[in-house]
């Protein structure tokens, strides 16, 4: 079955509890739970969600993860084709057997949505294996499942009746750095 998954992050509802970040970390990267510096590249946990805070003006926060672009710069620069768009689900994924660890994808991602695994020294990103296993069972990825503020939605963008399409239709959404032509599938409701 062909689907085209997308995410919605509702900044106006998020209360910054970080359940999504923690759940992403322990479930997708259990091997790094006790690592004192699991994600030096981002300076945070071993997680696919990055905290972006604006402290000046009217403070603002986005919890950012892979945008699953339709035209992803990371895929464009990958020399081996390890980074690719899986057209069966719309995810930008990495075939780790092919990945040589050149980190071009990391520099190319204008969202800084990839980080480097401290042991494997390879790029990591949403969607993690544990979440993929959930999706395969028809469940929500962890970040969406645990969110207490209804700030996260996940679903098939090609299905007009999906929850995510309903939210996109009813709320004012933006796509981040869309002007770069990346065609992200990560919708943000600005707070």
């Amino acid at each position: 079955m062909m689907v085209r998954y997308g995410f919605l992050y509702d900044e106006s509802r998020c209360i910054s509890c970080y359940a999504c970040i923690v759940a992403c970390s322990s479930n997708n990267y259990p091997e790094l739970m006790e690592d004192p510096n699991p994600n030096i590249f981002w300076g945070t946990m071993a997680t696919n969600i990055r905290i972006v805070i604006k402290e000046q003006g009217r403070p603002e926060q986005i919890l950012l993860s892979c945008q699953h672009c339709e035209r992803p710069p990371c895929v464009e620069v990958c020399p081996t084709g390890a980074s690719h768009v899986d057209r069966s689900n719309g995810f930008v994924e990495i075939d780790y057997d092919k990945c040589i660890g050149c980190k071009a994808c990391i520099t190319a991602c204008p969202y800084n949505a990839r980080w480097i695994h401290p042991i494997k020294l390879k790029p990591m990103k949403c969607i993690g294996d544990a979440c993929k296993a959930r999706i395969a069972k028809g469940e929500m990825p962890f970040c969406v499942e645990v969110c207490p503020a209804e700030a996260r939605v996940f679903g098939d963008l090609d299905d007009p009746n999906s929850e995510i399409n309903k939210r996109i239709a009813s709320a004012k959404t933006v796509k981040i750095k869309e002007y770069l032509g990346t065609e992200p599938k990560f919708y943000v409701v600005r707070g």
């Binding site: 509890c17 923690v22 322990s26 739970m33 006790e34 499942e145 645990v146 207490p148």
Partner: peptide, 29 residues
């Protein structure tokens, strides 16, 4: 214990960053 998710339909469902940390609690040093 590897994961925590809220109970759907619970009158006081979780979950916050603290609860999500429970896999760390169990056999913490």
């Amino acid at each position: 214990p590897v994961a925590a998710v809220p109970i759907e339909g619970h009158p006081q469902p979780g979950l916050c960053g603290r609860a999500a940390m429970l896999p760390w609690l169990y056999d913490n040093a």
